[in-house]
């Protein structure tokens, strides 16, 4: 466990990223359920959980969650989101050819996959989805686009993501969806939560 602020700690998990992330999500859920006094924010990410607290928070109590992230019941999300997608991204041809496939064949395979929300970050409602086969892992673009259109479904490294709003971005654009991912009037405002399953359909 490392100090990330006066009252903020990073808990880290081992193993390949998908497993480390599962442990991080488990620990985050366990900490949230623990009701420890002084918890302010709990942020699971790729391999870590950031816990931000008030002076009341006792770091010694947090260390236990790093040692045994799933010491409470394992977290299984029953939510699966079906996201309609139009496969007309500017980078589709490049993505498909790097995978050695025609654009049509790539999309046919992509919509058979089931992804898991690993964590959210970058911008409100932006989810990092795991479950992309390694053959489809692509580096992000050398130069980010100034404005990626809202609803863009995109790939970078091991992740699939959907841009909830138009922002700068360096991911490879596969397609787009009109599905609303972040709505301030909804509770919670983000459609996706860590652990949710996501599938795309045409």
């Amino acid at each position: 466990m490392k100090e990330a602020g006066e009252f903020a700690w990073l808990l880290a998990f081992e193993g390949d990223e998908a497993h480390a992330n599962e442990a991080a999500r488990g620990a985050a859920a366990s900490i949230r359920r623990s009701g420890l006094p002084g918890l302010v924010d709990i942020v699971p990410a790729a391999r870590t959980v950031l816990v931000v607290g008030s002076p009341e928070l006792d770091p010694a109590r947090l260390a236990a969650f790093e040692a045994a992230p799933l010491h409470a019941a394992p977290v299984v999300s029953l939510r699966t989101h079906e996201i309609p997608m139009t496969p007309d991204g500017e980078d589709l041809d490049k993505i498909a050819s790097l995978a050695g496939l025609s654009p049509h064949a790539f999309v046919e395979i992509f919509v058979q996959l089931t992804f898991t929300v690993g964590f959210l970050g970058f911008s409100p409602g932006f989810a990092y989805l795991y479950g992309l086969p390694e053959a489809f892992h692509l580096p992000r673009r050398g130069t980010p686009r100034v404005a990626v259109p809202a609803g863009s479904v995109a790939l970078a490294g091991p992740y699939v993501g959907i841009y909830p709003a138009s922002t700068p971005g360096g991911w490879n654009l596969l397609g787009r969806t009109a599905h609303r991912l972040f709505d301030l009037r909804a509770d919670p405002p983000s459609l996706f939560a860590p652990g949710d399953r996501v599938r795309f359909r045409l």
């Binding site: 990330a4 602020g5 990073l10 990223e17 391999r47 970050g121």
Partner: peptide
């Protein structure tokens, strides 16, 4: 930075 895992940030970091 290419292989670094993304993680939560704090104010003042």
């Amino acid at each position: 930075t290419a292989s670094r895992a993304t993680e939560g940030t704090t104010r003042g970091t």
